[in-house]
């Protein structure tokens, strides 16, 4: 039962929702948001796409297997801890630096950790949703 309205709408909604999820992820350090919420929104976007176009199509749009996302996420989180370690600080200590793009941007290892959380959440949620939907 594919609905024309839903499938047309999700084609436009997917990029918008992903943009929102990245916004939530990057915003999360100071205000509500963060890796988990961002990840859930991104996973919801793909889940919506799967409802509209089928799981096969959603997997194709995702490009990689959700499992790889889990691995990458864990690796990113681990890396954020190790960066502090190799610069002679305790493991997982938050290190911050300010990058001056057109706007000033605080960049630090906690952000990197959040990116890891984001990827793991997307990976786990989609793995569950896809395998339940395919059954």
């Amino acid at each position: 039962m594919t609905s024309l309205i839903l499938s047309t709408a999700t084609t436009y909604l997917l990029p918008l929702l992903l943009l929102l999820s990245v916004y939530l992820l990057l915003h999360g350090h100071d205000v509500p948001g963060g890796g988990f919420v961002g990840g859930v929104v991104a996973a919801a976007a793909f889940a919506l796409y799967a409802i509209a176009h089928g799981v096969e199509e959603a997997r194709r749009v995702l490009h990689t297997h959700p499992r790889t996302l889990i691995g990458l996420g864990l690796l990113t989180a681990l890396l954020s801890g190790v960066i502090a370690f190799v610069s002679n600080e305790p493991f997982l200590k938050g290190l911050w630096t300010t990058v001056t793009l057109p706007v000033e941007w605080k960049l630090g290892t906690p952000t990197l950790f959040d990116v890891g959380v984001y990827l793991v959440v997307v990976g786990v949620t989609l793995m569950i949703i896809f395998s339940v939907a395919e059954d």
């Binding site: 297997h65 499992r67 790889t68 889990i70 691995g71 990458l72 864990l74 690796l75 681990l78 190790v82 370690f85 305790p90 493991f91």
Partner: peptide
């Protein structure tokens, strides 16, 4: 050697990550 305390946690995690990525 502080790193020795962390290694028993990091080595299994890294191995699991590698296993997930190569599959």
């Amino acid at each position: 050697m502080k790193v020795l305390l962390l290694l028993p946690l990091l080595i299994p995690l890294l191995t699991a990550i590698i296993s997930l990525l190569v599959w």
